[in-house]
């Protein structure tokens, strides 16, 4: 059994840890609240842009199908991985990393990767797959323009048919306790095929301003930017939620440990006192006899 002093020290150190996890929980809670507001806003934006995209898919005449809708038959493909920048958030980062690795191992075509977030970058930089671009700590500077700029290398490789299919693996925020792991094809944009398979009525094409090809190209790039922007916000909210939950249960665990250690501490202190008493009594009896 540990000595009384050792136990006392352990109790103090667990109490310190509890203070830290408690503080981290408070910080995560504040960040989580902000992130959930951002998620709601970008979901609203994405929903609207998607409705325009779906209108477009239903209306566009097949004389000019933009390359974002077509399979370019490239021998290579790309994977976008979105994970967090920091740890202490339970299995949040591990879930994305694990799924990405499983996916990459399964691919027959060579797959280059584009990484958002420090944690996935740290993991994949020593692995066999080619990292085309990595954006660690991207959330600290994130806005639409930054997302657009970050996607330029991938988009131009797509146009040049150096990559064909592009996939996205990330966490989609659900509640503070849960995120949903997403693995989806983002390029070519699937909506066109889906909508045209079930097309019921023929609507007239839009008037475009300026020329149709230009508007389609820039609108689809914009759609893609909004999609990744939204995915980044989803991931960020999920991460802060996971961290808040992880720090909450760490605080609870510390509390339990303190209780357990305190019982042990009291028991061993009691044992010492009992032992001392019996020694005194024994000594006194020896003197009497």
């Amino acid at each position: 059994m540990a000595s009384v002093r050792e136990l006392k020290q352990r109790i103090l150190s667990v109490k310190e840890t509890k203070k830290i996890t408690q503080a981290m929980k408070m910080v995560a809670a504040a960040k989580f609240k902000r992130a959930t507001i951002e998620v709601q806003k970008s979901r609203d934006l994405y929903k609207n842009i998607q409705s325009v995209l779906n209108n477009l898919c239903a209306r566009i005449e097949p004389d000019l199908i933009p390359s974002f809708f077509k399979d370019n038959k490239s021998e290579k493909q790309a994977l976008i991985i979105i994970a967090g920048d920091r740890g202490l958030c339970g299995g949040f980062n591990a879930a994305v990393i694990k799924e990405a690795e499983r996916f990459l191992k399964e691919q027959k075509k060579p797959t280059e990767i584009y990484i958002f977030g420090n944690k996935a970058h740290l993991y994949f930089k020593s692995k066999q797959w080619e990292i085309a671009k990595a954006y660690p700590y991207f959330m600290e500077i994130m806005d639409m323009e930054e997302v657009h700029d970050a996607l330029i290398p991938l988009v131009s490789r797509y146009y040049q048919k150096e990559v064909g299919r592009v996939w996205l693996i990330s966490n989609k925020f659900k509640t503070a306790l849960t995120s949903e792991l997403i693995n989806t094809q983002v390029l070519p944009v699937k909506n066109y095929e889906v909508i045209n398979e079930e097309k019921k009525e023929i609507k007239s094409d839009y008037i475009y301003d300026p020329a149709k090809a230009d508007v389609l190209k820039s609108f689809l790039e914009y759609y893609f930017t909004v999609q990744i922007f939204t995915a980044l916000n989803e991931s960020s909210a999920g991460e802060e939620g996971a961290r808040m939950t992880a720090m909450d249960s760490a605080t609870d665990n510390a509390e339990d440990m303190i209780k357990g250690l305190s019982i042990k501490y009291n028991q061993s202190r009691q044992a010492v006192i009992t032992k001392e008493l019996s020694e005194i009594v024994g000594g006194a009896e020896a003197l009497v006899n």
Binding site: V52, I207, Y208, V215, F219
Partner: peptide, 14 residues
């Protein structure tokens, strides 16, 4: 510049 009144034809503009 373009002016839009109600009942305009579907348009997608940059």
């Amino acid at each position: 510049e373009m002016g839009i009144l109600p009942e305009h034809s579907p348009l997608l503009a940059e």
